[in-house]
Structures are given as structure tokens and as C-alpha cells.
């Protein structure tokens, strides 16, 4: 066991932490919020609130 072996184990631990956080958060958000709200984003909508294209 040397430095690089510890680094490998540390990497595995971090993978579980980052991946776990994302998955848990995804599950939590999906069960807390309504799917229609989550998918309510519309392309270009914000454009119309900021700039109106006129000639």
C-alpha cells in the first residue's frame, strides 16, 4: 500500500459521495415537485420578456 493506492480508494469514496448526492437529490426533487412544474420551461420565452423585436 502506497500513496497511489490510498488515492484510488479516496477516488472511489468521492465517486460514491458525488454520485449519491446527485441521485438522492434527483429522487427527492422528483417526489417533492409536480412533474408538470419541473418540465414547464419553454424555449425563447424569456426573450420576449426582455427584448421585443420590432422594426
Amino acid at each position: 500500500m502506497d500513496f497511489w493506492n490510498y488515492l484510488e480508494y479516496a477516488a472511489w469514496v468521492l465517486i460514491v459521495l458525488f454520485g449519491g448526492h446527485m441521485l438522492i437529490d434527483l429522487a427527492r426533487v422528483d417526489s417533492t415537485y409536480d412533474n408538470d412544474l419541473l418540465t414547464s420551461s419553454r424555449e425563447g420565452e424569456i426573450e420576449r420578456t426582455q427584448e421585443l423585436h420590432k422594426l
Binding site: I46, R48, T49, E51, L52, K54
Partner: peptide, 14 residues
């Protein structure tokens, strides 16, 4: 040509 600024939060047509 003019670009009109509308405060964000103003109602969006449609």
C-alpha cells in the same frame, strides 16, 4: 429599429 425593454415578470403574451 427599436428594442423595447419590458421588465421581466411582465405578463408574456399567450
Amino acid at each position: 429599429m427599436t428594442v423595447t425593454s419590458v421588465p421581466s415578470g411582465a405578463p408574456i403574451p399567450g
